[in-house]
Amino acid sequence: MIPLLLRDIRLSVRAGGGALIGVLFFMTVVAVIPFGVGPDLNLLSRIGPAILWIGALLAALLGLDRLFQAEREDGSLDLLLMQETPLVLTVLVKCLAHWIATGLPLVIAAPLLGLFMNMDEVAIGATTLTLLAGTPAITFIGAAGAAIAVALPRGGLLVSILVLPLAIPVLIFGVSAVHAAIEDPAPFLPPFLILVAINLFFAVIGPVAAAAALRLSSD
């Protein structure tokens, strides 16, 4: 499984890979928000965590459609399906590679964008931490959508439409954990632990659903 992980990471950082695009999209989306709401620093620092989360959510969805589509186009998907290794495990590893290449850079870029949003240290730390815990969940559940849309021509947009509603809980608990960290009376841990639980739950249900969809859509 390590070779598959390394291959996928290598593919996404190679020329033409999607690793850079996701972060760039994240930066652009977040940078455009102030042009819409105005450069009021107090307002920006209040909505900053939510903006970062929405931006990261959209950026994480961006490259997902290529997760299995690229494998299908060059015939690799057939060979991955035939192997003795459980398909669920293959999908899980592909998700991990995808997250390392596209999700982790978002987490790393988040503190920088937090500065743009005039967020204080606690808010930046909390946002980064929740993104670290939450973005894998988006990838896992997104893999199911990507597997369902793999056989469709131009599945890219469809993946986003399929996955966004499923990712709403991640967004809710991610942002509310950050707000709990900033505003004293509310405790940080309960929403954060729910977020982690969602992550673990999706880590199971996403690959299982994706593997089933891939088997069924093979033709």
Partner: peptide, 13 residues
């Protein structure tokens, strides 16, 4: 081993 119409190799690698 299955050798289909497509080569199952990555152009970038």
């Amino acid at each position: 081993h299955y050798l289909g119409h497509r080569n199952a190799m990555k152009r970038e690698l």
